[in-house]
Nucleic acid binder design. Structure first.
Length: 507
RNA sequence: CGGGGCGUGGCGCAGUCUGGAAGCGCACUUGAAUGGGGUUCAAGGGGUCGGAGGUUCAAAUCCUCUCGCCCCGACCA
């Protein structure tokens, strides 16, 4: 038996996937858990990753005419009551502020005092308060479309939390738009889903499946919910972005009315759409390996780290000089319309230094010592290849080609993830095979099994919930590509179906 | 909120059954050696054992209560 190579993260993905996930976050210094239940402290490396996502998305939003604004963290309780389904969906997970003052209590501790006349809900999402603002801003068809986005934090009091994937507080953006016509709102819903798809695939290197949610999985209060679904390495699905067509539901609830060119009073058609810090969890679980995270170059906090190798103290000055010059040269180079982001790390901590950067997933590591200087070369390791596989490259060539190398890593990550998704997606038409597919082979709870099953579904909520109950498998979405494209029979009841849907276990 | 597991220096753990001076590895600090490398040696710093009660001459260990985390469900971006 071959001895397993030592990995930087233990347990490995194979041994215990969820524990691996926690350990990667710790080892890569993305985040810490906080003293507050279910909340996280996003550390600089993780926050820089988020900032890059924000940067990319924000530009894409603005390209479609969206403007940023900011709305209050607190929502009057009465606002939330306005849309019936919406309340029902969120009521259970709302944090509520009932007091506005603390006083010394009997035992010397502080106790809430001064109760509020109307309790305030900490936003779980902002449809209602933004709807209220929209009602004030809109009076004529000339005010439409209204295209607004806000970058914010929201709070959802979840029963079970998982860092980045489901925390009580998380960072996100929520876009809210109002339109004069149904058609235009529907188009906007789809347009934003396409923006999310581009973010996921072109920037995060996460292949996704675009589709529509079933009625049961729809956003509370929405007429239609579109989403992108990605496959993680444990073969579970992660909803990576959603875009909702809200019809006139929220317009009616908040009184978003306008006068048309024909002088009639009409309710506007609205949409909302969002992605969150959950995407970071998606990056970890799509690209990470047993040595840590791998950050896609286009959103990497830093692209390259330069590590001087100093053998003798007298070499120090010139090696550092060489490294500094190289850093300056690299910073002149461009990748994905941005300057190359360079770190230099001259800590004298031996091999641990290189491993720290591997765990953090920096795309390129460069070692530079006197020998390289003599040859006017650099010694380069790529994060998409094994840690020991490093090569000497002439300095000038490295500087000239670093952009291409990053592009190559970016493409590799995407291709790998695509192949993985393809390998674990299959068409299943037989009920027994379907149940086998989603049933672990052993009693070991950490066994990785299943994947995406493309199977027929008759459209009934009954079949959907039966499968969910039997296997904890849900309909992730009805892909646009398979919608009404093929007839068959429902995997659950056998009745006629006109399309395949994606079934999977989900985060 | 139900079922299971776990809380011991920053991280990973042993010690708990069978009560008897808080340990180990990694990390950290200092010194030296080494020098394409998770290196070696030496000397250090750091923990009221999640918290609160109780039993006892004596509690990390036994009892009661509590808080938190992880996994599996229900809920969800």
């Amino acid at each position: 038996m071959v001895k397993a190579e030592k990995t930087a993260i233990s347990p490995t993905r194979q041994e215990d996937y969820s524990e691996w996930y926690q350990q990667v976050i710790k080892a890569s210094e993305l985040a810490d858990r906080s003293p507050v239940r279910g909340c996280m402290i996003i550390k600089p490396w993780g926050y820089a990753l988020w900032e890059n996502i924000v940067w990319v998305l924000d530009a894409m939003f603005k390209d479609t005419g969206v403007k940023n604004a900011y709305f209050p963290l607190f929502i009057p309780l009465s606002f939330l009551e306005k849309e019936a389904e919406h309340v029902e969906g969120f009521a259970k997970e709302c944090a509520v502020v009932t007091h506005h003052r603390l006083e010394k209590g009997m035992d010397g501790g502080l106790v809430p005092a001064g109760s509020l006349a109307e309790p305030l809900v900490v936003r779980p999402t902002s449809e209602t308060i933004i709807g209220d603002a929209f009602a004030n801003w809109i009076s004529s068809y000339r005010d439409l479309p209204l295209l607004i986005n806000q970058w914010a934090n929201v709070v959802r009091w979840e029963m079970r939390t998982r860092i980045f994937l489901r925390t009580s507080e998380f960072l996100w953006q929520e876009g809210h738009t109002a339109h004069a016509t149904e058609q235009e709102a529907i188009e906007r819903t789809r347009m934003m889903l396409d923006v999310y798809t581009r973010l996921a695939e072109e920037y995060l290197a996460i292949p996704v499946i675009q589709g529509r949610k079933s009625a049961a999985e729809r956003f509370p209060g929405a007429v239609d919910t579109l989403c992108i679904e990605a496959m993680m390495q444990d073969r579970k699905a992660l909803q990576a972005g959603t875009s909702h067509f809200l019809g006139q539901n929220f317009a009616k609830a908040s009184g978003i009315k306008f006068q048309s060119a024909q002088e009639t009073e009409q309710f506007a058609w609205t949409t909302s759409w969002g992605v969150s810090t959950r995407l970071i969890g998606g990056i970890i679980m799509t690209h990470g390996d047993d040595n840590g995270i791998i950050v896609p170059p286009k959103v990497a906090p830093s692209h390259v780290v330069l590590m001087p190798i100093i053998r003798k103290p007298e070499d120090r000055g010139k090696v550092i000089d060489y490294v500094n010059h190289l850093a300056a040269q690299l910073r002149q180079q461009q990748f994905s319309h941005q300057n190359i982001r360079v770190e230099t790390d001259d800590r004298d901590i031996g091999g641990a230094r290189g491993w720290e950067w591997i765990k953090k997933g920096i795309p390129i590591r460069v070692e530079i010592g006197p020998k390289d200087m003599e040859k006017n070369a650099v010694f380069v390791g790529r994060r998409d290849r094994p840690p020991k596989e490093k090569e000497s490259i002439p300095r000038n060539r490295f500087v000239a080609e670093i952009g291409m190398m990053l592009e190559d890593i970016q493409n590799n990550l995407f291709e790998r993830a695509k192949i993985f998704q393809k390998d674990h997606t299959c068409d299943i038409d037989n009920q027994k095979n379907f149940y086998d597919f989603f049933t672990p082979k052993s009693s070991d709870t950490t066994e990785i099994h299943g994947g995406f099953a493309r199977s027929h579904w008759c459209g009934s909520e009954k079949c959907e919930s039966k499968i969910k109950e039997d296997l904890s498998v849900s309909i992730r979405n009805i892909p646009f590509t398979t919608e009404k494209s093929e007839s068959g029979s429902c995997i659950c009841c056998g009745k006629k179906s006109d399309c395949r849907v994606i079934f999977a276990k989900a985060y």
